[in-house]
Amino acid sequence: MLPGGNIWLLVVLWFTPCHLSRVSQPSDYDYVSFQPELGRQYQSGRFYSRPAQCVDIPQDLPLCHGVGYNKMVLPNLLDHETMVEVKYQASSWVPLLSKNCHPGTQVFLCSLFAPVCLDRPIYPCRWLCEAVRDGCEPVMQYFGFPWPEMLRCDQFPRDDVCIAVTSPNATQAPRPRKTEVCPQCDSEIKADTLYEHMCASEFALKVTIRDVKKDGGDRKLVLRKKKALKKGPIQKKDWGDLVLYLKNGANCPCHQLDQLSGQFLLLGRKLKNQHILTAVHKWDKSNREFNRFMRKVKKSKCPKPHSVFM
């Protein structure tokens, strides 16, 4: 399911006034098998080393599960020529879906990472990009991410065939969050979602916390004990006195940190010289979903994370 409820994927066709526009539901799509002559210069005349192909969206591309269609074009609209590259790049965006920052987030991202198979490339509508950007960039800033240059909205069509979404409030600004909880602290523990988030993170730690202090507009966590589930970019020289930062978290509630007793699961990434948190969870062995998550960690191996935000 898409964030925000039952959202249909549409191709919006702009015609002269004497024509009626046709809106297609996912089941209306006619998937095409691309011919070799389309290959090397598919997508705005760009050159690619291999012909364009229509392929299944793989099970290990969680960003685009349930998006409304099951086949995609390679190369995609972000210049990724292989499925390996698509999966590495897309993994960094998976945690954003759980934040429900805009109901069109998944459709917008997947229209670029996993474009639907049609006989020509169809880009997302500019207004959809702007709506998703305005809803999600404030959340992304908590994780140290700006809206990336590769998703600059003015590059997308305003008055041409384009991808949009329809839902009761899709064209309106997102409603204010029910609470002002720090985004790093507002995720319910669901085994599959937590595993995907861990795989998308550069590091994952089991820790006990000595202290939490304000540091400008951030909050910093001083650790007592720590064990790496995934160490990623944390260097040996930083490990002994490792400090983690809750970006822009000085004044928003993080209920997990109200009591510092017990152990925590912390997920994050390195930004410049800081280790930034993207999720804070209690290490709760009494939670069935958390135990499912830990079993999955022991049995499965994450693909190598590759950040697309920078």
Rank of each mutant, 00 (worst) to 15 (best):
D218M: 09
D218H: 15
K220S: 09
L221S: 13
V222Y: 14
V222I: 15
V222P: 10
V222E: 13
V222R: 12
L223G: 12
L223H: 10
K225H: 11
K226T: 13
K226Y: 08
K227E: 15
A228E: 12
L229V: 13
K230Y: 11
K231C: 15
I234F: 10
Q235M: 07
K236W: 08
K236R: 09
K237S: 14
K237I: 10
D238I: 11
D238A: 13
D238W: 12
D238P: 07
G240S: 15
G240Y: 09
D241Y: 14
L242N: 06
V243I: 11
Y245S: 05
Y245V: 12
L246W: 02
L246H: 01
L246C: 04
K247Y: 04
K247N: 05
N248I: 06
N248T: 01
G249K: 00
G249E: 02
N251I: 10
N251E: 06
N251P: 01
N251W: 04
C252I: 01
P253D: 10
C254L: 02
H255M: 07
H255T: 04
Q256D: 08
Q256A: 06
L257D: 01
D258T: 02
D258C: 04
Q259C: 06
S261C: 12
S261K: 10
G262P: 09
Q263C: 08
Q263E: 15
Q263F: 05
F264Q: 14
L265Y: 00
L265W: 00
L267N: 05
R269T: 09
L271V: 03
L271E: 00
K272M: 08
I276F: 08
L277S: 04
L277Q: 05
V280H: 01
H281I: 03
H281C: 04
K285G: 08
S286L: 04
S286W: 07
N287P: 09
R288D: 15
E289K: 10
E289V: 10
F290S: 11
N291S: 15
N291H: 06
R292H: 13
R292D: 11
